[in-house]
């Protein structure tokens, strides 16, 4: 049982560090908030891409939907949304602290549920697709969403939307969003840990290893796939609202459905850390984000090029990721455990 105790020590240490971080490094609060967002991106991508073997290149869709839904709910509670967005920038209505908090408290869960429902609806068609078709289909969905959002006047079309701005009187703005995002990541982490430890985890791994076999065994593959995508979408949708409010502006292509940046980061971070493990995406996202913040300014704009090269490098030379590498190198600590096998009961 030492391993379990080690786990709790680890969680405790990370928890304390995470809570202390914004007070110790107050000038890095925004970057740290984005770190949690990146971890969430990688974890939610890994449900599909790592654990279930379905490469989704369009998961950013649910994040963007969440961002818009949350903003519309927050505004719609107190103002007319169409009038609000058409006046974008000119005279942004102000929100009192309680209006802001109520809006966000309602907007986030509504956004999460909307994203999950959307995943279930789209999943009815998309999750029947395999391999290439699913990959390209989801890629199409992500861009489709950006195009539609960029043309829909109700939510500001191409000129974007300004979500309710953070009011005075609620303390530090970065700290507020830091803890909201941290909370979402903690909730997502433990939800996934719980899901992976039971039948759900076994089922989606079985789908990854051999979906035809799983069907031939009568497994309700469709249900599992839908739930997997739904969970992924729920947490992405949940995070959309606070991130929109934190940035203070929703651009359809650059913040909400940012396929060429966040949409790609998701994939990269998950495979960098190690697909199909619970810690892999967390580690991958942390390393990616920290290096990005520390070094990428030196690359003078070439960082996005490096990102593409990095994906290729990892996929081709390092497909097992950091966690997979650790398991190979240090099986006694990270590896798959083979307990001493005593002779079977009947031998």
């Amino acid at each position: 049982m030492t391993r379990v105790r080690n786990d709790y020590v680890l969680y405790g240490a990370i928890g304390v560090a995470a809570i202390a971080a914004p007070f110790v490094f107050p000038s890095f609060q925004i970057q740290l908030s984005f770190l949690w967002l990146m971890i969430l991106f990688a974890m939610t991508w890994d449900i599909m891409g790592g654990q279930m073997g379905y490469n989704s290149f369009g998961n950013i869709l649910y994040f963007g939907v969440g961002m818009y839904v949350s903003a519309v709910v927050q505004v719609g509670l107190f103002y007319d949304v169409a009038a609000y967005t058409s006046a974008a920038g000119a005279n942004i209505q102000s929100f009192t602290p309680s209006q802001f908090l109520w809006g966000l408290a309602l907007g986030m869960p509504v956004a999460g549920l909307a994203a999950a429902v959307l995943a279930a609806v789209l999943g009815a068609g998309m999750l029947g697709l395999r391999g290439h078709y699913f990959a390209i289909g989801t890629l199409g969905l992500g861009i489709l969403a950006a195009e539609l959002a960029g043309a829909w006047d109700y939510i500001g079309a191409g000129s974007g939307m300004v979500p309710p701005l953070f009011p005075d009187g609620l303390g530090s703005r970065p700290r507020f969003f830091y803890f909201v995002l941290f909370g979402i990541v903690v909730a997502a982490f433990f939800t996934l840990r719980w899901l992976y430890s039971g039948r759900f985890g076994l089922a989606i791994n079985a789908i990854r290893d051999d979906e035809d076999k799983a069907e031939a065994m009568g497994l309700h593959t469709r249900r599992y796939k839908t739930v997997a995508w739904g969970v992924s979408a729920f947490f992405l949708g949940l995070a959309g609202g606070p991130v929109g409010a934190m940035i203070g502006f929703i651009d359809p292509r650059d913040t909400a459905f940012a396929g060429t940046t966040w949409g790609v980061f998701m994939v990269l971070m998950a495979i960098l850390g190690g697909k199909g493990t619970i810690w892999g995406p967390v580690i991958g996202a942390t390393i990616f984000h920290v290096t990005q913040e520390l070094f990428w300014t030196f690359l003078l704009g070439w960082q996005r090029v490096a990102m593409g090269a990095l994906i290729v490098l990892i996929v081709v030379f390092f497909p097992q990721g950091i966690m997979g590498w650790l398991r190979e190198r240090m099986p006694e600590r990270f590896g798959h455990r083979v307990e001493d096998s005593p002779a079977g009961p009947g031998d």
Partner: peptide, 28 residues
């Protein structure tokens, strides 16, 4: 055809009769 990256016991655990599988069991 077996699930290659799962242990034998896991292969067996996921092969329980689907007839007995309710929605609740998905998460158990």
């Amino acid at each position: 055809r077996v699930y290659g990256r799962m242990t034998c016991v896991q292969n067996m655990q996921i092969s329980t009769p689907p007839r007995e599988e309710g929605l609740r069991d998905m998460f158990a």
